[in-house]
Design a protein around this nucleic acid. Structure first.
Lengths: 345, 345
DNA sequence: CTGTTAGCGCCTTCAA
DNA sequence: TTGAAGGCGCTAACAG
């Protein structure tokens, strides 16, 4: 078991012995601490190099009491949305000298909690996470006594976990207003999942705006479960088309993934977008990938992550947040592409 | 700096003091080691629970000399292909009681090497990686003295890093034979990137099979760089269509991502798949996502990862591999979907 | 059945 | 400018 590889790994002691100095000297040379002659430093560093010495970060973390590591847990690494966030987070963290541990909770509350424990056990200095769902808040807030935690999505009212998220009410409003400006008077919301707070807010403001403007703002709902947002869009819009004979003028999809599903349903039926039907989504994810590039409403993902990491670091350095400071709503923007066109007729 | 949060984290000592036992007893209770009365165990565990004690894995790893952690480094977390592999690896590793550190090398040799150092510094017990490119081998093989390493793709001849990969020659052969069986006699290979060993093998056997069967097996190449495989397929097939007037009967795309690009190019020009053009890809990634679900050739991704982790663990437990054992070629299979149909005319 | 003790590899005072 | 020694939190002998 311990004979692993038969080769003993080089430690700072080995280096010290080989170089004929003390471990303290090696340590100082390695960490660029002053107070030693340039020639010993270079000599020691040379020995390290020659012996291919790699410092043991565990031991270092143990004595230093900080690991320069943050943890990120997301529900599904396979989703382009989360993958994008992780990539950006990795880049941003690296810039700030942190390493990142990624965890995939598989959309499972229990695994989410397990991973929090694991990360804390590994002495991360902060955790960034995209909650599995609204119940996450209750499960996880008590971990805040160990380590700063920031959510990348809104948390339920009254929960102490701070967050950085999109102002989803604004998102819904922007999408609805834009379609109305395009001249549409009959719009349909597809892919609504009432369990998601973001969806609820989008729908709510969508309905507010349409009602106020005096135009039709329908919502098509089904009871079923779908294995992905794409599936949801594809199946739900398919069902809608079977039930109703008249197409709406425009569709608001609950997300870009849903919108891509709607596109698939349309292609199969030879409904052309945007000629016969305009379509708008949310999130700006994979919006330029499929056959039709999607007009969408979104915040900047890199800003999202950047603000969250900033907040984490601020908390980590002992600055306690005022309540409002822990609730950051980023303003979304319209990103015009090809799936909507001015209504004429 | 150390005043972090103002709260001192609970350690095993605190628990021991609180419970009125020694640290050894707490440790034994926690790790389920025998030789203690059931009532002390339960009592101690209760105290741990009450104090919300989370063991410090760093300290544990330091003394145990093993961390139950493996590292995985991939070039691009944003690619569905790598995302899929990571997800499967995480699941498989968890099953075996390992945690996983993920790293995103951003398709950059230097970062790839940096992450290897970081992982080794963190005392991972093995590294699984998908090489940035063929140069990776030279950069990384020397890390094998620290820790078992397995590549998820073929390594250049003569390199000591063991690997588990698809038998790509077989892939190309399967695709070509299938199209010939479908009755096609004029086929085009799109998206060839000569820098990729997998592509070279696919093309080679594609040409071998077509030549032997006496049918046309063309390859369309361009000099340009593309920002993604999808782009490559989309742009390259677009260019092809502009230059030539006659469509081939079937297209072999270098990967499914490329194939999806080809689909986009076709949709824009009203070329219907599979009626006017049959299309086949490789990898079985996102093959059922876009408008047309793609016929493709691939190994099982979960098997791929499983075999690689197995190999890692075998190496880790000190068993040295024979040369052939370190070179595993998995047999790909045809996955029939909707993008190919029997040729009639 | 339980406690004492010696490190794991590293950093950091405190002396020299 | 350098070295010796203590300790980070934990586990694993070895005593009792």
């Amino acid at each position: 078991m311990k004979a692993k590889q038969g080769v003993k790994v080089t430690t700072i002691k080995d280096v010290a012995r080989e170089a004929g100095v003390s471990v303290a000297t090696v340590s100082r040379a390695l960490n660029g601490l002053g107070g030693m002659s340039e020639e010993t430093r270079e000599y020691v560093l040379g020995v390290c190099e020659r012996m291919a010495y790699v410092p043991n970060s565990l031991a270092r973390g143990l004595v230093m009491q900080h690991t320069q590591t943050i943890g990120i847990v997301i529900p599904d690494i396979t989703s382009p949305f989360y993958a994008k966030l992780m990539e950006l987070a990795a880049g941003e963290a690296k810039l700030l000298g942190y390493q990142v541990l990624f965890c995939n909770s598989f959309r499972n509350y229990e695994m989410e909690e397990d991973y929090f424990k694991l990360l804390i056990g590994n002495q991360v200095e902060g955790i960034l996470f995209f909650p599995v769902g609204e119940q996450s808040a209750k499960n996880l807030y008590h971990f805040m006594r160990y380590v700063p935690i920031v959510a990348l999505n809104q948390m339920p009212e009254g929960n102490p976990i701070p967050y950085v998220c999109t102002d989803e009410a604004k998102s819904g409003e922007i999408a609805a207003r834009y379609l109305i400006e395009c001249g549409f008077r009959d719009m349909l919301f597809i892919g609504y999942d009432a369990r998601r707070m973001a969806h609820r807010k989008r729908v709510e403001s969508f309905q507010g705006v349409t009602k106020q403007a005096g135009v039709a703002g329908r919502i098509f709902e089904t009871e079923r479960q779908y294995k992905s947002s794409f599936e949801r869009g594809y199946r739900q819009f398919g069902e809608f088309l079977e039930q109703k004979t008249k197409l709406p003028e425009a569709v608001i999809a609950a997300s870009d993934a849903t919108a891509n599903g709607v596109i698939k349903a349309c292609v199969e039926r030879n409904i052309s977008i945007p000629e016969e039907l305009s379509l708008i989504g949310f999130d700006n994810i994979n919006a330029d990938l499929p056959t039709i590039s999607l007009t969408t409403v979104s915040i900047s993902h890199s800003l999202h992550v950047k603000r969250a990491i900033e907040m984490l670091i601020r908390m980590q350095s002992g600055i306690s947040l005022k309540r409002e400071e822990g609730h950051v709503f980023l303003k979304p923007e319209l990103i015009e592409r090809d799936s909507c066109k001015i209504h004429t007729s």
